[in-house]
Computed example of a mutant assay.
Amino acid sequence: MTETARTAAQSAGKPPGLRERMRATVRTEVVEVAHRLFTEQGFDKTTVDQIAAEVGLSRASLFRYFGTKEEIVLGRLAESGRRIAEALAARPDDERPWEALRRSFDVLTRMNEQAPEQTLSYLRMLQETPSLRAGHYEKQRSWQELLVPEVARRLGVSPDQPEDTRPSALAAAALACLDVAATGWVACEGAVPLAVLLDRAMGALEEQPGPA
């Protein structure tokens, strides 16, 4: 191992420093306050100045933590994407890629079960606010990029072969099913568990009935 690689490995293994922990704490507080205000007033009617004042930050300071108001809402999606990718990589190697993708989404369904009302409010806001819908789409595109390499590995192909569209197709289809299930979950006000709706959506692509 080179000295540079050794230093990088040692740095990766270090716990976050005080500054990083303080920054994470402030970000968490901003997100919690902002989501409460968004729920009470709506996304468009809540201003950055309101959020900053309640957290005890200046407007300029808040923008050092989040580049835009939308990013306060969408920031958590990046972490969700990483968790899904990690869950996919941890699935058994002999599991079919489609089943492995479905099971990797369990990290989201379990989170939703812990705080269903909060998650419903969050997803409803994503679906009803045009600027957030666009940002959500872009975040999910980044999820697809995280999932494709592992799907390709399970198919025994290289993710760098653009002529083999199967890994991207499977990842994109699975995420589309997740989006459809989430939309249905919000529409029925959580009456049917998200996991059940996701099973139905992804199961429909497996059945593919022939003509009568």
Rank of each mutant, 00 (worst) to 15 (best):
T2G: 15
G190V: 00
A191I: 04
A89K: 15
S11D: 13
G156R: 12
G17E: 02
A53V: 04
L88Q: 09
Y122F: 15
F66T: 02
A5I: 15
F63Y: 15
L57A: 04
S58D: 12
K14D: 06
G67A: 15
F66C: 02
G81Y: 01
R76K: 10
K139L: 05
A169P: 02
Q140G: 07
P16L: 05
V107T: 07
E32Q: 13
L194P: 00
V151D: 00
P149G: 04
E206S: 14
A115I: 09
Q10N: 10
A24V: 05
R76W: 06
I72S: 01
A134G: 08
A181Y: 00
L108Q: 10
A195N: 13
Q50D: 13
K69H: 09
G184P: 03
E79R: 15
L123H: 11
L198S: 01
D164K: 11
L62F: 13
S121H: 07
K45N: 08
L74V: 06
A134I: 08
T165M: 08
K69A: 02
Q144C: 06
E32H: 11
G81K: 02
A34C: 04
A212C: 03
A60I: 09
A169T: 11
A52F: 02
G56W: 08
R166T: 07
L37I: 08
